[in-house]
Simulated assay, not measured.
Amino acid sequence: MSKSRSNRRKNRKKRFWRMTVSLFLLLLLGGGSYFAYNVFYHAKIAGENIYKEIDRDKVKNHRTEEVKITKDAFNILLLGIEEQGGGERSDVVMLVTVSPQTGEVSMLSIPRDTRTMIPAAGFKTKITESYSYGGVESTIETVNQLLDVPIDYYITTNFEGFEDIVDTLGGVQVNVPFTFKAQLTGSLKWKTFYEGQMDLNGNEALAYVRMRKTDPAGDKGRNERQKEVIKAIIDKGTSFSSITKIDDLLGDLGENVKTNIPPSQFASFVKLYAKLKSSEIQTLALRGTDGKYNGISYFFPEDESIEEISTILNNTLNNTTTNNLTGNQSSDSSTTEQASTGVEY
């Protein structure tokens, strides 16, 4: 074979591989561009569906200046909304405080039966009832008054949305603290949750976080399970394996979630979460007692505990401390004792 023919054959092979690689890169970039456009499109639609600003005239203690997500400390109020008897209640009330500068993240679950003043109603009752007296603004104002802290953002979801999100993610894994039975919504069947690790679907996860009557720790145990599942959802939702499910996740959010976080800030939240993902969460808890008033069961928080938590949260928001924990709080678990006294208050 002549040398020139051999060179021509080698050149053809080189051109073939260059064309193959170029075509592959074109397809890859084209597919990536489509994926990026698809995500952007669905995120835009979902953002428009879920975004709902609060009525500032109904919330007195609300910061008017813009919060810079990656720099300023802020509060997010998480509400699980339950529809019952034609009305709505905030079955889950959880306050998350984040300080990007110090890396501190705290989580406070307020027992649903906490007896406190509901400004929109004009009298004291269970904090779970606050939502029925004026929606999210009423609950925000109630938490404002209870803890004396501003609420910058809120996120609400109904139970259907919670189930859909967990199912779209392929379920969540939890560490059941003790064996118990709980009734599932919809089918009303009873599910046994065995002590140890379990994989739960959306319907099961909802029953897992709602059960409290047979928990030895009462609302304290329920709050711990709520925190565990929420963290599992966030961890799984932001994992690489969930990228292919982004359309479905955004659809679930758009249909069942409301928030005043501007869509333009979503990327900042994801960036901040990636930065603080390994941070230890400080679990805060209200100390108090269970009792009755006019024949109705309530959780009565101690004034001293309310003031203590208010100080901790405001210190975090002002970036004035590097360790907010006191002897009555823990970064590992809540230390609140809720004694069932049965005493009339």
Rank of each mutant, 00 (worst) to 15 (best):
I118N: 13
S138E: 15
I127W: 15
I140H: 06
Y131I: 10
Y133N: 10
T116H: 02
Y133G: 10
E137K: 13
I118S: 15
G134R: 07
Q145S: 12
Y131H: 10
K124I: 02
I140P: 03
S132C: 08
T116F: 00
Y133S: 04
N144A: 02
A120F: 15
G122C: 04
N144F: 08
I127E: 04
L147H: 03
I118K: 14
N144L: 02
T142F: 01
G122A: 11
F123K: 06
I118Y: 14
K124H: 06
T116N: 04
V136H: 09
L147P: 00
G135N: 07
G122L: 07
V136G: 12
S138C: 14
T125H: 08
G134Y: 05
Y131S: 02
K124P: 14
E141S: 10
T128D: 10
E141A: 12
I140D: 07
S132Y: 13
A120Q: 09
E137G: 04
T125A: 14
S130M: 13
Q145T: 15
T116Q: 11
V143H: 01
Y131R: 08
E137S: 07
P119H: 00
E137F: 11
T142Y: 00
T142E: 12
G122I: 02
Q145F: 09
G134A: 12
G135D: 04
V143Y: 00
K126R: 11
M117K: 11
E129S: 13
A121G: 02
S132H: 13
T128N: 15
I140Q: 07
T128Y: 07
G134D: 14
I140R: 03
S132R: 11
V136Q: 11
T125L: 11
I140C: 07
L147F: 14
G122P: 00
K124L: 05
V143T: 01
T116S: 08
S132K: 13
P119W: 00
A120L: 11
A120I: 13
F123C: 02
E141R: 15
K124E: 09
M117A: 07
V149H: 01
M117I: 12
S138R: 11
G134W: 14
S130V: 07
Y133E: 09
P119C: 00
E137T: 08
V136K: 14
E129A: 15
I127R: 02
I127S: 04
K124T: 06
I127F: 13
T125W: 00
E129K: 15
T139P: 03
T139M: 02
T142V: 01
M117S: 15
I127N: 05
G122V: 02
Y133T: 13
I127A: 01
T125K: 05
D148M: 06
E141Q: 09
N144H: 04
T142L: 03
G135T: 00
G134V: 07
K124C: 06
T125N: 08
G135Q: 02
T139E: 03
Y133W: 12
E129M: 11
G135Y: 14
G135P: 05
T142S: 05
E141G: 07
Q145R: 11
K126L: 03
G134L: 12
K126V: 06
S130K: 14
A121M: 15
